[in-house]
Amino acid sequence: MSADGSRPRSDDDEFRFLAGDAERVGRGGPLPAVARESAVVPDRRTVSGLAFDGGRPPQLVALHGAGLNAHSFDPMLLALGRPALALDLPGHGRSDWRSDADYRPSALAADVAAVLDARVTDPVALVGHSLGGLTAALVAAARPRLVRRVILIDITPGVSPRRDAGAVHEFIRGQRHFGSIDEIVDRARRFGIGRDPAALARGIALNTRVRADGRLEWAHHFAHLDAPSAGEDPHPYAAIWGALDGLSQTGAPSALIAADGGMLDAALVAEWRERLPGSPVVEIAGPHNLHEAAPAALAEAVDRLLAGDERAAQ
């Protein structure tokens, strides 16, 4: 939570979009049970998340990117149809803000690992988008007995935040309050964050709160922090290559799903292939936020990877 105790918007049912999400991805029949859960990490902060088919142990745990939240994965998880747990990373959604404002993958990984310790018994697949993907790699390295596969969505450790993620950072921090959801949708489309106005409006509605003056602001902590200094390490995630390289030795293979219009250029994808020759690359048409822009295609790609693992284990 923020210093003043404020929370994301709670004026409407947070699950109000599920029926529309299911229709969008072609899922028929009754909706699965989706429930909000929470876990307390060692310093007594709360990490919140959404359990899909909560009566069954999750087969995968989904980690969103910077400035998003667990609901970003709703359409993809409905299309996938597997028991899953989607977490609000610390500082996002309904998870508490970190008092040290440390949202580096290493800090987030420690929190996610604590949640896995409390919630997971059988090995799961970790599916992480952007910042969540880098976090997933470190979680898998720290908890190999709890992870059977890692799937990174449109991110590699070779990404340079200043060079490759500048537009995302500017979108999050460049304007801090808005008059309407439509205004934010227009801004997101200008920044190439998404293409479908309805999908963008849905995500924004679940990721904003109303200020005392009636204007909208982002609910996540990132939007309330100053931008990082220009003198930061241009490749702060390079050490995560080592975590990914070691995963195959622990029986947790990795894979990359790249958006053809996303953050990764040909050089970054080529670096992945060179460094991790046994880790497949799947390309999907869409922008960086594939789980919001192309959820059915993303679910199909994830399902193929998981089904391949299941066949190999038989």
Rank of each mutant, 00 (worst) to 15 (best):
E14P: 15
R16T: 04
G20S: 13
R27N: 01
G28V: 07
R44V: 06
R44F: 10
A51V: 00
A51D: 03
D53E: 09
R56C: 11
A62M: 12
A62Q: 09
L63E: 14
H71L: 14
M76S: 15
M76G: 02
L80T: 09
L85S: 06
H92V: 00
G93Y: 14
G93S: 11
S95R: 13
D100Q: 11
Y103M: 03
R104F: 13
S106T: 11
A109K: 08
V115N: 06
R119K: 12
P123S: 07
V124C: 11
A125H: 09
A125Q: 06
G128L: 05
H129W: 12
H129D: 01
S130Y: 03
L131M: 11
L131N: 12
A137G: 06
A141V: 01
P144F: 01
T156I: 13
P161L: 13
E170K: 05
R173P: 00
G174W: 15
R176F: 01
H177S: 12
G179I: 00
D182Q: 04
I184T: 08
I184Y: 08
D186R: 08
R187P: 02
A188H: 07
A188D: 11
A201G: 14
G203Q: 06
T208I: 05
H220I: 00
H221D: 14
F222M: 07
A223K: 03
D226E: 07
S229M: 05
G231M: 09
G231K: 04
G231V: 06
D233R: 02
P236T: 09
P236E: 10
A239V: 04
Q249E: 15
Q249L: 10
T250I: 00
G262W: 05
A266P: 00
V269G: 03
E271S: 09
W272C: 02
L276S: 06
P277K: 01
V281F: 15
V282E: 13
E283N: 09
H288N: 07
N289S: 14
E292I: 13
A297E: 11
L298K: 03
D303H: 14
